[in-house]
Amino acid sequence: MRDLALAVRSGGGFGLGLVFFLIVTVLVPFGVGPETARLAPIAPGILWVGALLACLLSLDRIFALDREDGALDLLATAPIPLEGLTLAKAAAHWLTTGLPISIAAAPLGVFLSLPWPGHLWLSLSLLVGTPALSLIGCFGAALTVGLRRGGLLLSVLVLPLYIPTLVFGADVARRGAEGLDAATPLALLGAVTLGCLAGLPFAAAAALRVSLR
C-alpha cells in the first residue's frame, strides 16, 4: 500500500493544490478589503472554503492518470481488493493535498488577521476534516472515471457532499478563533470523517468496478 502512495505521489502535479490554496488566501483581502475588523471574522470560513477548493482541484487526477496510461486495468487485475486500492488512493491524495494544506493553514491565517488561538484550531479542524474530503473526492472520481470530460461533473457531484464537512470544520475553526468551546463540532467533524472512512471505500470500489467494465 505504501508503494501505491509513492506511485501516486510521483505522478506529479499534486503540490499545485497547496499553491492554489496559498494564492486564494492571498487574493481574498484584495476582494474584501484589508481591514482587520472585516477579515478576522470571515478568516476561518475563507480558509476552509479555500482548502476545499484546493482539494477539489486534484481530484480528477486520482484515477484519470491511471486510466490514461492503462495502469488502472492492471491494478484492477492485481491481487488487491479495489476497496483497498481506493483507500490507498484517498490516503495518497490526502498526504499530498490535505496534510500540507492543514499545516500551511496556520501561518496563512496571519494574512487574514485570524485571532491567535484560532490558528491551532484551524489546523486541527483541517487535519481532522480533510481526510473526509479526500475520501468523498475519491468516490466522486470513481463515479466519473469512465467519462471523457468528467472533471466538471466531478465538481458538481462532490461539492454538495462536502457540505457537512465544511459546516462542522469551519465551525470548529470559528469557535476556536472566538475563544468558544469547539469540542462539539470537532467531535461531529471526527464522526463525519470516520463514517466516510468506514463506508465510502466500498461505494467507491463498487463505482470503480462498474466504470471499468
Partner: peptide, 17 residues
Amino acid sequence: PEAVAYGGHRDGMKGQM
C-alpha cells in the same frame, strides 16, 4: 482471473519513475 496477467494497449508505467 487470478491466474491471468493482462497486457493492454498501454503499459501502465509511470514516466516519472
